[in-house]
């Protein structure tokens, strides 16, 4: 099988696996882990869009004599993935902090066990 096809396949299956986890998970930590799997899948997908067989790093060094471009790897998807990884990290950290608060307020980290409470102040 072609490597690119394999990578695309891997990316989409990770996304779908994570999506299944988010949809069926009751435990909040598990849901966040499933989100992490989805993000990993989409990062793989993004990197794959810039993938070329036998490419070289996109850095111009003095040894290039001609203006014709050699077989550079596309650097943009990698920059996108870097941003996306950082955002994913931030979201995971924030959601874990929120889960701590959720646990303090409700005494559980399971979703759906907490009915929408009726009393609201402020």
């Amino acid at each position: 099988m072609n490597l690119t096809v394999l990578l695309y396949f891997g990316g989409f299956s990770l996304i779908l696996t994570g999506f299944y986890g988010v949809l069926t998970g009751k435990n909040l930590i598990r849901v966040i882990l499933a989100l992490g799997i989805m993000e990993a899948g989409v990062n793989l997908l993004l990197v794959t869009t810039g993938f070329k067989p036998k490419a070289i790093p996109p850095i111009i060094v003095k040894s290039f004599k001609t203006l014709s471009l050699p077989n550079f790897a596309d650097p943009l998807p990698q920059a996108l993935v870097l941003t996306s990884i950082v955002i994913g990290f931030g979201i995971t950290a924030l959601s874990l902090a929120l889960i701590v608060k959720y646990n303090e307020e409700n005494g559980t980290i399971k979703m759906d066990e907490v009915e929408n409470s009726e009393e609201v102040v402020e």
């Binding site: 889960i99 307020e105 979703m111 929408n116 409470s117 402020e122």
Partner: peptide, 11 residues
């Protein structure tokens, strides 16, 4: 928010 639904709503 100060009410019991805040972290629930955020998540």
């Amino acid at each position: 928010g100060k009410n019991s639904n805040s972290s629930n709503g955020a998540l």
